[in-house]
């Protein structure tokens, strides 16, 4: 327990000192949001209704950036030999990864806060009650936790920090194939099944419904996806970490 807390303290301290990383994780989603709202918003509908539509998508997009930097910092520890020091000590193996994951969640929370704040300035007027907000943030948190463990696993297997950063490519790309920015119904019919059945669509739909105080239709599906991903990613990452010594 102390080991995990110490590792969490370490990762958070290192995040604070690598502030470029945090700034990127905040500024990029905010800029993306401005781009979508002001450039595409007019074409798709009104700016007002589009900002209400797009905020959940931006929040999920920014978790992708967060996950990428998590994977990169895990790989950095793996390659620098810091991990050897920790692994030769009598401490629980996955406390190092726990530290990275908790710091990742904290960075994401900061980015989420910043995106919501800027969105409010841009006219975002969610109809959600406080309960709706709490539920929406809860759904997002579970998703971020799952994604962070997945990123930690990528960080363990990646051969270099550069290859870990490739995760960002997918994380940037996948949200476009979801209902993040445009409704799935507007996509060509061959793409629709992909978009409808990938995990982030239900997460986005649920967050969007909760924030805009609309009926939630895919809530359980979102929880099932995130929960399942969390269990699988946690198992995978800790298993990978335990196997490093076979190399």
């Amino acid at each position: 327990m102390t080991a995990s807390l110490t590792m969490i303290g370490r990762s958070i301290r290192l995040s604070r000192r690598n502030f470029d990383l945090v700034i990127m994780a905040i500024v990029l989603p905010v800029m993306m949001m401005a781009l979508f709202v002001y450039v595409f918003g007019g074409a798709i509908g009104s700016v007002q209704s589009y900002v209400d539509y797009v905020v959940p998508g931006i929040l999920v997009l920014s978790t992708g950036y967060g996950a990428t930097s998590t994977a990169m910092s895990v790989t950095d520890d793996m390659k620098k030999g810091v991990v050897d020091r920790f692994r030769s000590m009598p401490i629980n193996g996955f406390s190092l990864l726990t530290g990275h994951v908790v710091a990742s969640v904290a960075r994401n929370a900061l980015a989420t806060f910043a995106v919501v704040l800027v969105a409010l300035l841009m006219g975002f007027r969610p109809a959600a009650s406080p309960v709706g907000w709490v539920l929406a943030m809860g759904v997002l948190l579970l998703y971020v936790l799952a994604l962070s463990w997945l990123a930690a696993g990528f960080g363990v297997v990646a051969r270099s920090v550069e290859s870990a950063s490739l995760l960002g490519f997918f994380m940037l790309f996948i949200p476009y194939l979801s209902s993040a920015f445009v409704p799935v119904e507007t996509m060509p019919s061959w793409l629709r099944p992909v978009s409808e059945h990938q995990p982030i669509t239900p997460v986005i739909e649920t967050v969007r419904a909760l924030l805009n105080d609309q009926p939630v239709s895919s809530g359980w599906l979102a929880l099932a996806w995130s929960g399942g991903l969390l269990v699988a990613a946690f198992g995978w990452s800790t298993w990978l970490f335990g196997r490093i010594n076979r190399r």
């Binding site: 370490r10 301290r13 290192l14 000192r17 690598n18 620098k80 030999g81 810091v82 050897d84 020091r85 030769s88 000590m89 009598p90």
Partner: peptide, 18 residues
Amino acid sequence: VRGMISLTGQYAAVDEEQ
């Protein structure tokens, strides 16, 4: 074994930013 030993590896395993 880990409870008994310490390792100073070939490359300094220190956190640069701490």
